[in-house]
């Protein structure tokens, strides 16, 4: 196992833009591995118990003889850039274990629930030889889905009584789950939430497990661990992740290419026409799209 100090510094270098991923990776000796690391994303609303679930899962994976790295993301202030990274508080039991590496990251300018360089951090801990990587997102709402781009399997942790059955059929977070966990299952409404989720899953023609846990007491976590182990190696998320990445790349490139043409005379003419109320926003959008993307 690579010195944790070197690994930590390599992550910082990428996180802070002191070097490229390749440069940071070159500071770590390559470890022989038989399979890629298994990357599990843990996401869900704030306070649902994501860190506590992670803490318990560390224990399960360690008991199975695997080394575990955790990348835990907490939000940066959009006002000051500062952050309080508090996920470790729930993971103290593993402090003396050399087979566990826990790294907190601030979300900085990223809006998708992860840190801008979380993916690079995952690849660095993988290179350092960790068998399993648990990626914990910030507390998310419905559309922070970036974790799809890094994880093989995604666990959505929720709690009872956050809403009625309609919440479960809304788009976004519920679409990316490979496993649902209703945590704090000793609270009122847990069965109702689990039933709502189970109905939604069945009606979608999926087989996503819906589990109930009391993570603070470890209850139900063995079933979650078993569900993760059975999802492992399956291609549950690979195709989805690739699609997500490619679509994002296309969108970024389209935006860049459009921005590069904004100063062309034809584009200026369209904006001038819009400013003079000579066309509607919709017409201006159509004309700009024509100009930018169909060579018109």
């Amino acid at each position: 196992m690579i010195a944790q100090r070197d690994l930590a510094r390599a992550i910082s270098a990428v996180e802070n833009g002191h070097g490229s991923f390749a440069q940071a990776a070159a500071t770590l000796p390559e470890t022989a591995r038989t399979a890629p690391a298994y990357v599990v994303g843990i996401t869900g609303p704030p306070g649902a118990g994501k860190s506590t679930v992670v803490d318990r899962l560390i224990e399960n994976f360690r008991s199975a003889g695997e080394t575990v790295a955790v990348i835990a993301v907490d939000p940066s202030s959009p006002f000051t850039g500062g952050a309080v990274l508090g996920d470790r508080v729930r993971m103290q039991r593993h402090a003396g274990d050399r087979g566990v590496f826990i790294r907190s990251m601030a979300s900085r300018e990223a809006g998708g629930g992860l840190a801008p360089t979380a993916q690079e951090a995952v690849r660095l801990v993988e290179r350092a030889g960790f068998d399993v990587v648990l990626v914990e997102t910030v507390g998310v709402g419905q559309v922070e889905l970036e974790v799809v781009s890094v994880a093989d399997t995604i666990v959505v942790v929720t709690v009872p009584a956050l809403g009625d059955g309609v919440q479960t059929i809304k788009a976004g977070l519920t679409e990316i789950a490979d496993v649902f966990v209703v945590n704090m299952a000793d609270r009122p409404g847990a069965n109702r939430t689990a039933v709502d989720l189970t109905h939604m899953v069945r009606e979608s023609g999926r087989e996503t497990p819906v589990l109930q846990t009391i993570a603070s007491e470890g209850q139900g976590v063995d079933a979650l661990f078993a569900a993760l182990q059975s999802a492992r190696g399956g291609a549950t998320n690979a195709a989805r992740a690739v699609r997500f990445e490619v679509l994002r790349a296309v969108r970024d490139r389209a935006a860049r290419s459009a921005l590069a043409k904004l100063d062309e005379p034809a584009a200026r003419a369209i904006f001038a026409s819009l400013a003079a109320h000579a066309c509607t926003r919709r017409q201006a959008t159509d004309a700009l799209f024509e100009l930018f993307f169909t060579g018109g």
Partner: peptide
Amino acid sequence: LRDAGMEVVYTGLHQTPEM
């Protein structure tokens, strides 16, 4: 420290020097 723009890892109570 957060409000001053720093990233603060808070580890909680009962820490040993090793931790």
